[in-house]
Structure formats: structure tokens, C-alpha cells
Design a protein around this nucleic acid. Sequence first.
DNA 1: ATGAAAGCGCTAACAT
DNA 2: ATGTTAGCGCTTTCAT
Lengths: 337, 337
Amino acid sequence: MPTVLDVARVAGVAPITVSRVINNTGYISQETREKVETAINELGYVPNTLARGLRSKRTHALALVVADITNPYFTSMARGVEDVAGLNGYTVIYCNTDESESKEDKYANILVQRQVDGVLLVPAGGNAKTVRYLDNNKIDVVVLDRRVPERDTNLVCSDSENGARELTELLINLGHQRIAIITGPDNVSTSTDRVVGYRQALKAAGLPANEQVYYGGFNQQTGYESTKIAMRSSQKPTAIFAANNFILIGVVKALRELKMRVPEDVSVVGFDDFPESMLIEPFFTVAIQPAYEMGKKAAELLIKQINGEIDEGYQKIILPTEIIVRRSTGPVRASPE
Amino acid sequence: MPTVLDVARVAGVAPITVSRVINNTGYISQETREKVETAINELGYVPNTLARGLRSKRTHALALVVADITNPYFTSMARGVEDVAGLNGYTVIYCNTDESESKEDKYANILVQRQVDGVLLVPAGGNAKTVRYLDNNKIDVVVLDRRVPERDTNLVCSDSENGARELTELLINLGHQRIAIITGPDNVSTSTDRVVGYRQALKAAGLPANEQVYYGGFNQQTGYESTKIAMRSSQKPTAIFAANNFILIGVVKALRELKMRVPEDVSVVGFDDFPESMLIEPFFTVAIQPAYEMGKKAAELLIKQINGEIDEGYQKIILPTEIIVRRSTGPVRASPE
DNA sequence: ATGAAAGCGCTAACAT
DNA sequence: ATGTTAGCGCTTTCAT
């Protein structure tokens, strides 16, 4: 493979001149530029980013660390990141932690080895370990989707608390008084924030004693099992709030098995739906997080950070959720028995 | 950040010894190894892959080039790739071409610049340009999901032709005679192979004149629009074969609008479903491609190729599809009018 | 079992 | 507007 030296020889210039043409830096006469470009094409020269990065301390690589790229919510986010990154000359490395702290640690180490310029992190564990580690290694970080405790960071997320409150209010306004929330781990901010919003709405309606909170994982199994438990309890809920899309599927599967109709017997609301392209007929009343937008905003913020365009400490961007009312919610029935 | 030199100084050895400890190469006494490891921990040393790659000509990076990571089919494939890559010490760079040749070109160039060791390519255009380009730059390639014309390559795909034939036979056995197939572009092998399988089944049943083929894109819009056209035609089909998951959604949306019930009025079959985790109640009769497995197998083959463990030319791995009969198919009605 | 020297391909820093 | 020199951090090659 040809190098700058080969190009320089063919063009009759010094290697640094070739470098300047490639990177569009410094002053180059039109004539020289053309000679160099001709040589580049003639040789099929392609710059070597390893050498470039080693010398310049910039790899133009970002990483996106998420729980599971298999969840369409994160996939949309990833596209937002990639689109912005591409426009700015950055390549993205994706890492799936599967909500495991040890995988997150492993990836953090790999990313330092690879000298990425910045990391977009959806933190798996409920701690700031990875943020600190990346910081110590001088890698810029934007925390995405979830907050990290006890540490100030750049942050892009959506307003879970507010979305959850609105969703709960909607159910209360339909006459529901026994509303269960089924959510993810109790050390993940998106999970706990949604519980906080739910509680606010119950309290405002004078129903603080009615809360039924089920923690678990952000997966179908949790939705399924918690629904079965909730429906066996003496305080059988008339409405269920699923704190993410996978939980929502589990909830509905359980209700089907229990022969309970939605919304006639039980109203159901969720956080995050599935993309329109995957749905035959959107059915669920949900709070939508702008996942693509979050990815975009986070990548933009990270790139600014890398370029040193931010001086006033850490930035926080909190995007609003949107409530979409569909057919999975209805008025509470006169009497459940 | 500390370098091998710093570690060497602290451990009282030469830099090359540190290198040997890190990479587990050559002979190292237990005593020396411990001294070096202590120094590494003490300094928080992390090897720099850029420098390593520049010198050793191995980056331990792979790329996965797909149409759109937003499609769960490709997302599953991506997980298969990532899991195998991770186990073997490789990092994966994902690239979305959105079925555009120019984006594919752009990414191919970036991947050469980044000196990836190998590329898993789902080719966007109906040509071998990218394969040739990567080849010229000494980068190993495994073509994935679709074949490339006029060029021999390593290949991992599923048996589209056979799956399509079985799916069509299933419809014919239910009494359907007017079956439409709605598929992707006519220059993509998965699209044309499925048409070939469909034709084989029609021919075997003595119905070669009944074929109705609609080409388009592998997206919802194509499914929707082609269904509307098909249903307005004089030879209204009694069954529709959607050549991928997104087309399937479009087909069903159109049928809903036309007030046609599935399977009472029209039977519907598809290629690729959505993951179980996204479905409340699996409904469609489909041919399933083992996406995760394909990703895994392809990554394994690529890594073998990189390690020079393959000498007998190019390898082809064609995995079988699985037909799952569900409730979207039924016997043809006595008379449609 | 360990080390010395050299160089991978590029660009920062400093000329001119 | 262009060039010279040096060195980024590592591992290959060749000693010992």
C-alpha cells in the first residue's frame, strides 16, 4: 500500500505537503494541490488512520455503549448517533453491555486501548465507575438516557418523571384508582424516575396509599410475571403502567392468558413503543421518548466537547416525552367483580 | 498516559519485555512477568492499539456493513457477529448503507483507512465493486445474506430459494392458485432468489401462468402499495407472499384498509418475522432465517480467513430456513365474489 | 530468557 | 507557500 512518502515522490513534493493537501490545512498553491491529487489518484493512496491517530492524538472514533442494540429504542438512538457522527467525520463503535457492569468495564478498557475521542454511555450499573475511568484516561463522555449517581456529567435524557406523571394522571382521569407500575431495576434512573412521576400523580389525586410498584428488569419476563402476581393480589389493579416496551409486551401476554381484555377489563399504558415500521396497528397509549433525537443531540454535544467548544462545565439536555393516547386505555368499569 | 517505556523503567526491564508479557509471546520467567504486571497495575498502564496496529499490521477490528441496523433481522445478525468477535478479541464497527451504493463506497473507504482486518458485507448494490476494492486493499471479506454477481467470494446466507418454494407450496396445498409475491429490488439476490423459489412451486403445480410478481424495496411502503395494486387487478390474488418483514407489515396494513380479513379473505405468508420479544401474539406463517446464527458463522469464517486458516479457496455456508405455520394462512374460499 | 535498534505512516513544531 | 526534523507507542528483527 502506498504511503505519503510514495505520493510525495510522485508529486515531487515533501510528505508534509501531501499531508496538508489531505487534511486541508495550511496554505497550498492550486498548482501543488493538483499535482498531489493526481499522484494520490494514480497510486490509489488511502491515508492510514492508525498512523494519523498515533501522531495527532485524535482518532475520530466515538463509542456508543448501550444495554442492548436489539431493543428498537436503542437502535433508533444509534442511528441518531451514527448520522451525526458520519456528518462530522467520526466513526462509531457500538458496545452492548446487556445491563452487565462487568461487560461495561471490559468495553471501557477496550475503548481506552482504542483511544476513542469520546464515549456516549448508557450506564449499566448504578454507579459512576466507568465515567471516572474514562475521565482518568482523558476521554470525553456524554451520559445518555440515564443519570449516574454522585457525579456531575454531561447528560442527554428524556423527562421520565414528567412523562410518567402524565401517563398516570391520564389513567386517574379515566377513573382508575388501583394502578400498578411494573418497572426495571431499582438502581437505574429511568426506572426510579418513572416511579417518582407515578407517585406524584397518585399523591396529587389523594391516592398515595394505593401504590403498587413492581421492580424487575426492562424485559418481557418481568412484565409477564409481575402482571400475574398483581392480578392474583387482593388489590387487583384496573390499570397497569409498563415502564418500557418489552415489559409492555409481557404485560399484555399475561393478560391474554388471564382472559382479561384491554382496555375493557384492564387499561394499559407504556413507556416507549415500537417503531411504526414494525406495527400493523398502533394500539397502546404510551409516552414516547425521542430516541433518534436523543442520539443526535448527544453526539453533537460530545463532538463539541471533544473540540473544546464547551467551557462552562457540564451540559444537561433533557428532552420532553410525548403522550400518545390510543386504544389500550379506557374508563374504569363500574365494578370488577 | 503511561507507555511501555514507563512500565519498563518501573519494572527494570526493556520495553520489549513488557510487550511480551502483555501479548503472552516468547519466553518470560515467572519472576519477570510478576515484576512487569506489578508495574502495569501501579501505573494504570493501558496498551495503545493504534501504535500496536501500526507496527503489527493487525488492528483486531472488523466491520459489519448492513443495509439498516434498524431492521431486527440485521440487529440479530449484528449480535451474532459481536458475540463471536468479542470472544476472539475483535472489536466491531457497524456501518449502515441504507441500501445505497454511494454510502457503501464511502464506508469501504473509511474501513480501508481504519485498516480493519476484515469486513462482513451485506452488499447494497447489485455489483462486486466493494468486494474488489477491499480485496485490492488486502482486506478479507465475507459476503453476508446476499450473493454478489460475477465474482467468487466467501459467503454466508440462508436458502432463500428453498424457503420461498416451501412457503409457496404451502399456499398451493391450501388450494390457492392466484398467489402474488411482493419483493425487494430486482438486483438483490435475496429478492430474486425468493421469486425463483416461488416460480418453481407454481410450475411444479402446473400454474406457471398465474405468477404475479411485484418488485420494489424491502420496506413497508412497497408492501402497502403493491397490495393495493394487486387487489385492484382483475386477477385478484387469494394469497400474498411478502418477501421480508417490513413488506409484510405493509401488506397487512393495506388489507385492513381494504376490509379484507386474514386469513378468511386473503392468506398471507412472509419471510422473516419480528423477534418474539416484540410480539404479543405471533400470527404470521413465515420462513425464518437464522439471523443470529448467520452473523456468528460469518464472523467465525472471517476470523479464520484472517488467521490464514483457510487455504482451499472460498467457503460458502448456506443455512436452511425454517417454516413456521401460524394463523395467517388458511384454505382458499369457495368463491371470492 | 532478555535486550538493542529500527521503523510502521503520519503530522507537530519549527524553520525558511 | 513549502520543507526538515523528529517522534507518537509499539513490535519486528536480529542479537546475546
